[in-house]
Nucleic acid binder design. Structure first.
Lengths: 245, 245
DNA sequence: GAGTGGTCTAGACCACGAG
DNA sequence: TCGTGGTCTAGACCACTCA
């Protein structure tokens, strides 16, 4: 019953060839017309099968060049729970982070997220981290204008500046709320993260507030759904549990 | 550039008609052949456009009947952080939960998840909760055989039994780890949750351990990605922060 | 220009649901 | 039986990449 359609059969065949190593990471698949004749199907059917693999993150389609086996996932682990910086495990290649700083005025979602009136001045840091040439994560950090450091974000000092500010926030914050959802990426996100528009992303929204309840930072993390996970660990201390019966 | 393809244009047109209320929830769309002539495209192109809407959770395709506008999402909120039972906000319709109890032996993922040797006796509770006739969440709860309550899971008493066991676990547990990922649903999950196979699900894996480090419960939650979110809130207590300089 | 993937057509045939 | 969606065909034409 599951293999009723040819597209599923073809996708399953290619999938096992990939996962079992008969097709290596980085390799190019035969041309779609060739694969179509090989599987004795028409090109649309063959392409539908490839679309499934693309949505699973197994292959990457590049217009004019071919279909390529994606490199096996080096998993991205977001560790929640209010750590000063959400740490990622040591990657195989050096991490490269490009930051784009933008000043903007609150509108739409941002007003409710940051609990500020529409039009408030904000600073957005868009951080795209790459492992070698592979994009890993996309983060948008929003900070009220008056809390943002007044530094020219040069490549060398941005990490330190961000870390300083974040640790300062952490010391002041009394509450951190993290929300995890999933959705399909916007075309821009798909392009930046180098993923298929059909591959869902994991979004993590992290809001930190200070003692007065003011939001001092909001982070929107966009992670490719095929290689990302978020973990939240708590060590319950029975003494603090004054809960209901 | 974004609206190059007809399928996107058609999908966008229908999307606005749905979100703006010109097409009401529960309504049936015109037949695909009719829509195809209406938009002056071939049936495959029209169907591709509908596939996009289906993957977004906006419409539901029912073979032999038609395409229907899905009811607007009543959001499912999973509250993490080790609460005895992850609570959901009050639904519009009464919640109906069906539980299927299965005894099985650990293998594959379950051995690493529960930290038990392969072949260990486990009890699986598959809980499908519905809001009226709409499926909401799918949970698989795994408990070591010797920790499972020896009750015949009848419909009336299951909730109490589960709650009792869970709260007991909570008092004993020293650690709860919750992991959130996203992926495409299995065909079974898509059928149970009544969602498109192309619509990603949010998966939450929750593992509770006792003081000795033994896993006393593992929960796999499957939530439809278009209407679910998981939140984790912490209130940092500065005294406990003995962190770096 | 040669080779590749991206989109689309105008049908055909099958499977499902309801009368 | 009829109308519906599900799958597939055998091409056509366009857009992109690279030499």
């Amino acid at each position: 019953m599951p293999a009723t359609s040819r597209r599923h059969a073809i996708a399953a065949d290619l999938r096992t060839q990939i996962t079992e190593g008969h097709l290596k990471a980085g390799d190019r698949l035969p041309a779609e017309t060739q694969l179509a004749t090989q599987y004795a199907v028409s090109t649309p059917t063959l392409r539908n099968a490839l679309a499934d693999l693309q949505a699973e993150g197994l292959i990457e389609k590049i217009h004019g060049k071919g279909n390529f086996i994606r490199h096996p996932c080096s998993r991205i682990v977001y560790v929640g729970g209010g750590h000063p910086l959400a740490e990622l495990p040591s990657p195989d290649a050096p991490l490269l982070v490009t930051v784009r700083t933008t000043q903007l005025h609150a509108q739409g979602d941002l007003t409710t997220l940051l609990k500020v009136p529409p039009g408030s001045s904000l600073v957005e840091y868009r951080c795209l981290s790459q492992e070698g040439s592979e994009p890993r994560t996309l983060a948008r950090i929003y900070v009220p204008q008056d809390l943002a450091p007044a530094h020219a974000s040069n490549d060398s000092g941005w990490t330190k500046a961000l870390a300083d500010r974040l640790s300062a926030c952490d010391h002041r914050s009394t509450g951190i709320e993290e929300t995890v959802t999933t959705r399909r990426p916007t075309p821009e996100e798909a392009a930046l993260l180098h993923i298929s528009p059909a591959l869902a992303v994991l979004t993590i929204t992290r809001v930190a507030s200070d003692k007065a309840g003011r939001v001092i930072e909001a982070v929107r993390l966009i992670l490719p759904g095929d290689r990302a996970e978020a973990t939240f660990t708590i060590h319950s201390t029975p003494n603090e549990e004054g809960s209901e019966g």
